[in-house]
Amino acid sequence: MEICELRLYVSGNTTRSTRAIQNLRSLCDSEMAGAYTLEVIDIYQNPGAARDAQIIAVPTLMKLKPLPTRLLIGDLSDTATLRSALGIE
């Protein structure tokens, strides 16, 4: 099974960003432990990355692999959408 490559854009340690990281990690750790990589990018620290990746809404989650790429915005509290996007049955 291909490694799931995720990138999460957050804005510092705001509640919403923290919640998004927690929601994502808890799902991934329970469903696909060891089969995913997660890169968390703080746009406050790296504003150029926000421009390059066309980030407007925060938090934004990008599933880069496996293809097709998926783009999710919000604090990832909608678990059903998140699961379907990550391909978890």
């Binding site: 804005s11 919403r16 919640r19 998004a20 929601n23 809404a57 925060v58 938090p59 934004t60 989650l61 998926r70 783009l71 999710l72 915005i73 919000g74 604090d75 990832l76 509290s77 909608d78 959408t81 998140l82 996007a85």
Partner: peptide, 8 residues
């Protein structure tokens, strides 16, 4: 884009 909760 898919919306999965609160955002700004």
């Amino acid at each position: 884009i898919e919306e999965t909760g609160e955002y700004d």
